[in-house]
């Protein structure tokens, strides 16, 4: 097992109370949405299916795979469930898993559960799902494309959940961003590789034995585009949090300033949002937020446009809905 401090289950005491409450509010909204969406998707199969799959994720986390030198990795599962059954199902499943881990085994705190479930449930599910679908739209429906999409989705789900954890710790002033962010992102870049390998292998196995399950997941994916909105919301939330997290410049810039070579860095010939600030807004935090917002919207718009372009040739959309 990985040492517990590298895991993402935040115990109580590490999130400040305002941050923990924000987590609760975000999670509550998303749970209500997820309950409605999965109800539509699965009808009254919803309760047994979600419940048993939550137990599955819990049990699957017991299956270890030896990495090297006595350490071993295991699946986290958010991306796998999101790819197989859709992101809303994954949100519910992962929230149940984390709730039981907190209530039954004290894996993660009770007040911290809002953000714990948000990181490993919501963020992991939506980023994993969004990356998987985007890659499949870009690369097509081949087997290689599917496995590449799965790998990227699984890796991103772990990495972004870890980055979100680091941001929350920094916002709570429990761990300086300049330490927490590179540590969490670095370690989970490796853990994410394990997640990607296991998820790819699991999906390949399911594709061989029950291809109908995966075909079903593609159909449900085409139906709902609400996940785009939610993915956007998550990105925006992280954007809002980032400038408030740490008044100090980020790690690289800090090193650069300390060594006095920041001035030597060349400015690019053109500059739309210089240094991520909007020129006519004076307050630096607000300006950074606005700049991040514009950037996020532009990136989201471009991705959406690309996805639409790739999707356009399919004419059977009107018949399916």
């Amino acid at each position: 097992m990985f040492p517990p401090f590298l895991a993402m289950h935040i115990p109580d005491g590490f999130l400040s109370i305002p941050v923990a409450l924000v987590g609760w509010v975000l999670l509550t909204i998303l749970i209500v949405l997820a309950l409605r969406q999965t109800r539509e998707q699965f009808k009254d199969r919803q309760i047994p299916l979600m419940g048993i799959l939550a137990a599955f994720v819990f049990a699957a986390q017991m299956i270890n795979f030896p990495v090297a030198g006595g350490t071993s990795g295991h699946l986290l599962g958010g991306a796998l469930v999101a790819i197989l059954l859709g992101p809303w199902a994954a949100v519910l499943v992962m929230t149940s898993v984390l709730g039981v881990q907190a209530l039954l085994f004290q894996d993660g705190g009770l007040l911290a559960i809002g953000f714990n479930a948000f990181n490993m449930g919501v963020i992991a599910a939506f980023t994993g799902y969004a990356a998987y679908n985007l890659i499949r739209r870009l690369l097509g429906q081949g087997r290689g494309a599917q496995l590449a999409a799965t790998a990227l989705g699984a890796w991103l789900s772990v990495e972004l959940a870890a980055i979100a954890t680091a941001l929350e710790l920094a916002l709570s002033n429990t761990s300086p961003l300049s330490v927490a962010l590179p540590t969490m992102a670095g370690v989970h870049a490796l853990i994410g590789i394990g997640e990607a390998l296991i998820t790819v292998a699991a999906l390949a196995f399911i594709q061989q034995t029950r291809p109908d399950l995966i075909a079903g997941s593609v159909k449900t994916a085409a139906r709902g585009s609400g996940w785009i909105a939610v993915g956007l919301l998550i990105a925006l939330a992280v954007t809002f949090a980032s400038p408030l997290a740490d008044p100090n410049p980020d790690g690289l810039e800090r090193v650069a300033e300390d060594h006095g070579f920041l001035s030597a860095a060349q400015e690019p010939p053109f500059n739309v949002l210089p240094d991520y600030t909007v020129p006519f807004i004076q307050d630096s935090a607000a300006s950074t937020i606005v700049a991040g917002l514009i950037g996020t919207l532009v990136v989201a718009g471009v991705s959406y446009g690309v996805a639409r372009l790739v999707e356009a040739p399919k004419a059977d959309k009107s018949t399916s809905s």
């Binding site: 047994p48 799959l53 399950l213």
Partner: peptide, 25 residues
């Protein structure tokens, strides 16, 4: 290879769980 074995086990566990949920339902 080790990851593939673990992943295959996870996939197999998923199918058993999914099919169990169908039976339970």
């Amino acid at each position: 290879w080790r990851a593939r074995v673990a992943g295959g086990m996870v996939g197999s566990l998923f199918l058993r769980s999914y099919e169990r949920s169908e039976r339970v339902y």
